[in-house]
Structure formats: C-alpha cells, structure tokens
C-alpha cells in the first residue's frame, strides 16, 4: 500500500514537471507583460491538479492497455499471415479514428465557410453542410489509405524517405493548382487528424509489426505510420478543393 502511494506520488510529480513550462509561461505573460492579476485562483489550482492527475492516469493506462493491445494485434496478424485482413484492419483503424475526430469536424466546417466566402459553393447552410461532410469523408479516407500504405511499407521493407519525398512533391504540385483559399486549411488538416489515442495505438501497431516480421528493424521500419497519416490529408484536401 505504502509502495503504491509512493509510486503514484512520483508519477504525479513527473506529470507536474511536464506541465510546469505552461504554468510558467502563462504566469509570466499575465503578471509581467500584460500586468494583470491572475483571475479565479481557486479554479486554476483545481484545474491544474486535474491536469496532473489526468496525465498520470493516461500514462499509466497507456503502458497497461493501449501499447499491449496494439502490439498483440500486430503479432496476431503477423502470425495469421493474412495480408489482406491486416490491410483492411489498417484502413478501418485510420478511417474510423479520423471520421469522428472533433478537431476535424471543426476544421471541416470552417473550410465550408471559406469555400462559401470565396464563391466556390453556394452560401447556403445546406450546401455548406454537404461540403463539410464531403471534406470529412475525404480526410478520413486519406488517413485510412495512409495507414494502409504505411503498413504495406513495413511488410515490404520499403525505405520511408522515398515515399515521403514523393508525397512532398505531390503536395507542391497540387499547391500550384489548388484554389488559394483552400491551401492553408489543407496544410493544417495534416496536423489535426492524429489524436491522442490514435497516436499510441498506431505507433504500437507499427513497432509490433516491425518486430514480428523477420528482417525488419522496429526503429527503422516500425515508426513512420503517423507521418503518412499527416501527409495524405494535405494532398486529398487540395484535390477536393480542385474538384468541387
């Protein structure tokens, strides 16, 4: 019992250290730059305690649940030897985790406003809603495709940089043709697709696969899935902007 409490206290101290920079930055700007008192001191203390506690639980659960399940599924698929099921799983994981992502829903509706303002679509709620829905599906599809490409790369052992550089070239070419209004949103959409739960799962999946397949190095082949998932949405969102 005593040991558990000591362990918990130590992990909470670690989490507090992770959080300390934000507290210092916000405190410094509030007191010295904007020269205003800190409002709702009580709320801030309670909130900070929650953040520290939450981060501690998250990391504890990560090593207990998310990492093991990602790795055990990678192992099971590798042993099963069915590439097609693995790829279907990869697509489902990418598509399913992205389509409901709150950050993506927010970005898609902002993009619809931009498109309506620029006269690309009619400025009605209905046409905006269908534009936003189409965009969300496009991004989710592109993330699903990204995980499929990434998993195929791990299986085949392709070097990552050719694929990524190829992707960059595509982004640059698309930029030249895409409507100017969509470019900023397209570039941002690469960053918003990967959520806090998806990242550890996908990382564990990649590393698990690279460890289970003979001849693959978990460091060189295991990482890189997230990289694809942040690259393909840029290409697909610009494509969407060009078509519609």
């Amino acid at each position: 019992m005593y040991k558990t409490i000591k362990l918990l206290a130590r992990s909470m101290l670690d989490s507090f250290r992770d959080l300390l920079p934000i507290i210092l930055v916000i405190g410094f700007f509030q007191l010295f730059v904007l020269q205003q008192p800190i409002p709702n001191m009580f709320d801030i203390l309670v909130g900070t305690f929650f953040v520290v506690l939450g981060l501690t639980f998250f990391i504890y659960g990560l090593e207990m649940g998310l990492f093991p399940i990602g790795e055990s599924m990678a192992n099971a698929f590798a042993r099963k030897g069915s590439v097609s099921w693995l790829l279907i799983f990869a697509f489902a994981l990418g598509f399913g985790t992205t389509v409901a992502e709150p950050a993506l829903i927010a970005v898609a509706s902002e993009a619809a406003d931009v498109a309506a303002n620029a006269g690309m679509i009619e400025n009605y709620d209905q046409s905006k809603a269908s534009y936003a829905y189409g965009l969300r599906m496009t991004v989710a599809f592109s993330v699903g495709l990204a995980i499929v490409i990434g998993v195929l790369r791990i299986i085949k052992g392709w070097p990552i940089h050719y694929l990524i550089i190829g992707g960059y070239v595509l982004v640059v070419i698309m930029t030249a043709f895409a409507p100017r209004e969509i470019i900023g949103i397209a570039y941002d959409s690469g960053g918003v697709t990967t959520s806090t739960i998806t990242v550890p799962l996908v990382t564990a999946l990649g590393v698990g696969l690279a460890s289970a397949i003979r001849g693959r190095n978990p460091m060189i082949d295991g990482f890189g899935l997230i990289a694809f998932a942040s690259l393909t949405p840029m290409i697909f969102v610009m494509g969407y902007g060009m078509l519609i």
Binding site: V46, V51, L53, G54, L55, G61, M64, L66, I69
Partner: peptide, 29 residues
C-alpha cells in the same frame, strides 16, 4: 482484464486532463 483496466485509466486520465485544461489554462491562454 489488464488491457480493459488500462483502457479505463486512459479514458479517465484523458477526461481529467481535458477538463483541467479547460478549467485552468485554456481560458487564460
């Protein structure tokens, strides 16, 4: 069993984390 407990820790942790941020740091930031 362990995986499920881990999942619930992740859920609880993430919720506390988001709620704390929304309460303390986000409004001020």
């Amino acid at each position: 069993r362990k995986v499920l407990i881990g999942f619930s820790y992740v859920l609880l942790g993430l919720s506390l984390f988001l709620m704390g941020l929304e309460k303390a740091l986000f409004p001020l930031g």
